[in-house]
Design a binder for these strands. Structure first.
Length: 800
DNA sequence: CAGTGAGCGAGCTTCCGCTTGACTT
């Protein structure tokens, strides 16, 4: 018999809270939502006022059963899910799923996990706010309708398996539009003048505030500077203050961990999860920059201990993002006196980052003195400017400096101290440079900078940023990739010892590391959605519906009426999309005429990905077009005629070996040789266009030798079955399936039958993503070799 | 990692948001 059952969302939270409450309280977790719309297409009865059907999520059956049992025994059930829209809905779903009646339940909320906050909450329970619950239902149903009506349109018009949704489609759109912006971008160059002086053995660097458009102008300027005297005309000192950034939210943590530790957003979340579960940090999915009073005084104590009174300046930050629901604190250490933690290297590094950021947020401003020296040139009216900074008081800079994205970086970001100067002082020129500098296009998104952008637009939630980023990659819309840059020449003019000389140097431009690139599929799908469903893919769509959800939450609007209004227009668009011609959305583009054959070259997106087509079908002459797939790094929108023509040179027959052809081509994993249905990757030094038969044969024989060394056992009766030695120890291969060897079995003594049985007992790997699914007919033996293998088992499933 | 690129059309796919483990090739 228990007196009080408290239900929270997270098990780690439950553990902490149980410690705060007496033994009259049992604290359990719901592990998030326990009920949801079923996966099928009839979850919402649109005709009957969008009536939803809810089911207990399959992975929550046990949790709900356990909670139901405890709730039955308990006198009072305290529903303590998060203080936001989703949390309110979780509480409501719990009352439904656990059959709780109103007299037994109390709804309580708190926004920080501190003893005071919990006890306060217990002393002021309230009822479940049905307006807030309805706002959540409207959100859930709208997302389901958008996703489940839009995606099938894509299956019909573009490719099966594609997806669209309120959040992911906008994320893809951002990446697509950024790519096009970069594609359109034309860099313009200008000459920047810098000068280096010698002041009593020390160096003083200065710059001309204006730039010159042409080399001639820059040349003329340097010429005029020959023999000039340089004098300090003015010295100005200005005090500057810098303030620390607020403590981390999910999105800012992902950004900093990406910039400083090179973590992916998923990696950041999984490392943070471990820190949270071991009680070292507060909750990591939050949009709040707020710290509890207890945390602030904890930070102040730690600062006092390590740096002294002078460095303390407590602050209460306010959130800037409008969509924030602030159900939790900002991300912070649970114990500020712990500067480091145990755990693996990544946990330690992420913790340190969190500690520094949170501590710095409660530290004094940095005081800086900025000096600007103006340097006159006796032969010219133009002035050079040198700036330097001296830190007078470090303040928060002692522990933490926020990093910036590439696009925000300035060349002169790091400034040192100037040598001692006085007005009227003449200084010696070492050299003056006019360097050609190109403007840069907007930077491609990283995972983290895309999250930042989404958050600014109020799209997505802390719990979904990382999953959204991986969804758009899994669906084949976006690829995280690195590119080598290209060399670009630039001009430098040098004035030294009263002589002006010029030289051409080269710089690397356009190199990218772990950036997001849209695929051709993303381009085609995005254009289709923009054309036919402009509303839902509009950048302000989420903001608009959020405003309506707020109205519902306030009780000013009825949720069914809101959905009705939205659905009417949206569904009309879905219906009229039926008539769209498939061919019109293939992204076809004419590249030009092949100068050799005189045939037309077209690039388009097909069922198997982007390809180019040379020539056209002509029934009169019997002429047929030839096709070639685009390679990694090539795109429909940007591939040039000459690069496309190159594609037709591969695959190429290298020669014969054991009466079979050896073909060279480039595949998903790079260049390779194929021979008798087997593939052999080409090492870097072999070019698929140049590789000789001898080289190819050597490659095949080497690979065979290596494979033979891995082989433990094979069976003459069935060559599809082998026992091999792999990276993780011995395993069995049956056809294309890898099978684990159970403990206690000697790999060398396995019989064929044992292998087959083990393979049978191993479940199929359910991987999605590949477009090559070959469902085997269950009953009939289908051995038709020539027929396209597209027949699936015709086993009608009971529809519900 | 090939070859393919029309349309026929079985039966599959899909959303967002809240939470953790179970996976170990």
């Amino acid at each position: 018999m228990i007196k009080n059952l408290v239900i929270v969302e997270s098990p780690a939270k439950a553990k902490t809270i149980e410690g705060y409450l007496g033994k009259d309280f049992v604290v359990k977790s719901s592990f998030g939502h326990v009920r949801d719309l079923p996966k099928d297409n009839n979850a919402i009865d649109i005709e009957n006022g969008f009536k939803p059907t809810y089911v207990i999520s399959s992975d929550k059956k046990d949790v709900v059963a356990q909670l139901r049992k405890l709730a039955k025994e308990a006198e009072t059930v305290w529903l303590a899910s998060d203080d936001d829209r989703e949390g309110e809905a979780i509480s409501w779903h719990l009352t439904e799923a656990l059959n709780l009646n109103d007299s037994k339940i109390r709804r309580i909320v708190f926004r920080e996990i501190t003893k005071n906050a919990i006890l306060n909450a217990i002393s002021s329970p309230r009822n479940i706010d049905m307006d807030l619950v309805n706002a959540q239902q409207a959100r859930r149903i709208l997302d389901r309708i958008v996703g489940f009506e839009l995606s099938p349109v894509l299956w019909k018009k573009i490719k099966t398996g594609l997806s669209a949704g309120r959040v992911q489609s906008v994320a893809v759109r951002l990446v697509v539009e950024r790519e096009r912006e970069i594609e359109r971008f034309k860099a313009d160059a200008a000459f920047k003048i810098t000068a280096s002086f010698s002041v009593e053995g020390k160096t003083l660097d200065a710059e001309l505030p204006t730039r010159f458009k042409t080399e001639e102008e820059a040349q003329a300027f340097l010429q005029k500077c020959i023999g000039a005297a340089h004098t300090i005309e003015n010295l100005e000192k200005k005090p500057l203050k810098r303030s620390p950034a607020p403590p981390f939210t999910t999105s800012t943590l992902q950004q900093e961990a990406s910039r400083k530790l090179y973590f992916s957003v998923a990696q950041t979340m999984s490392v943070a999860q471990k820190l949270y579960e071991s009680g070292k940090i507060s909750y990591m999915r939050t949009d709040s920059v707020n710290l509890s009073e207890e945390a602030i005084s904890g930070a102040a104590n730690a600062i006092q201990q390590s740096f002294g009174e002078k460095f303390i300046k407590t602050r209460r930050f306010k959130t800037k993002s409008s969509g924030a629901q602030e159900a939790h604190e900002a991300i912070r250490p649970t114990d500020f006196s712990q500067m480091t933690v145990s755990g693996d290297r990544n946990e330690q590094r992420l913790y340190e980052l969190i500690w520094k950021r949170a501590i710095a947020s409660q530290m004094a401003d940095a005081e800086i003195e900025k000096t600007t020296a103006t340097i006159g040139i006796s032969t010219q009216p133009e002035k050079l400017v040198a700036t330097g900074e001296v830190i007078k008081f470090e303040g928060f800079l002692k522990v933490y400096i926020e990093s910036k994205d590439d696009e925000e970086l300035q060349d002169d970001d790091v400034k040192g101290m100037l040598p001692p100067l006085s007005v009227g002082q003449t200084i010696d020129l070492r050299h003056m440079l006019a360097t050609q500098r190109y403007s840069r296009p907007a930077a491609r998104y990283t995972e983290a900078s895309l999250v930042k952008k989404l958050e600014e637009m109020g799209i997505g939630r802390p719990s979904t940023y990382a999953p959204t980023i991986s969804t758009i990659q899994k669906r084949g819309y976006v690829e995280k990739d690195s590119r080598e840059g290209k060399e670009r020449p630039y001009r430098v003019l040098i004035l030294q010892k009263d002589q002006v000389s010029a030289q051409t140097k080269t710089e690397i431009t356009g190199a990218e590391k772990a950036k997001l690139f849209p695929t051709d599929m993303a381009m085609v799908v995005n254009d289709f959605l923009v054309d036919h469903f402009p509303t839902v893919i509009d950048y302000s769509f989420t903001a608009k519906v959020e405003a309506e959800f707020d109205e519902i939450a306030q009780g000013h609007e009825e949720w069914k009426a809101m959905l009705e209004k939205f659905y009417e227009k949206f569904h009309k668009r879905i219906e009229s999309s039926e008539t769209i011609d498939r061919a019109a959305v293939s992204g076809a583009r004419e590249l030009g005429i092949d100068p050799v054959s005189g045939k037309k070259l077209i690039a388009k997106l097909g069922r198997f990905g982007p390809y180019v087509q040379l020539g056209e079908e002509n029934p009169d002459t019997g002429e047929k077009p030839v096709y070639a797939s685009l390679r990694k790094g090539q795109f429909l929108e940007s591939i040039a005629l000459e690069d496309a023509l190159e594609l037709f040179k591969l695959p190429r027959i290298v020669g014969m070996y054991e009466d079979k052809e050896m073909k060279a081509a480039i595949g998903r994993f790079g260049p390779y040789i194929s021979h008798s249905s087997k593939f052999y990757s080409l090492p870097k030094h072999l070019d698929p266009l140049q590789v000789t038969p001898e080289e190819a044969i050597e490659l095949i024989e080497q690979k065979r030798k290596a494979d033979a060394e891995k082989l433990i056992k094979s069976f003459d009766e069935n060559p599809d079955v082998q026992v091999l030695n792999g990276r993780y120890g011995p395993y069995i291969v049956v056809g294309k399936k890898n099978v684990k060897i159970p403990k206690g079995k000697e790999p060398a003594e396995l019989t064929l039958q044992e292998c087959l049985d083990l393979a049978e007992a191993t479940p199929e790997k359910k991987g999605r993503g590949g477009f090559k699914k070959k469902p085997e007919p269950a009953e009939k033996k289908a051995t038709t070799k020539k027929a396209p293998a597209k027949k699936a088992a015709a086993k009608p499933k009971a529809k519900k």
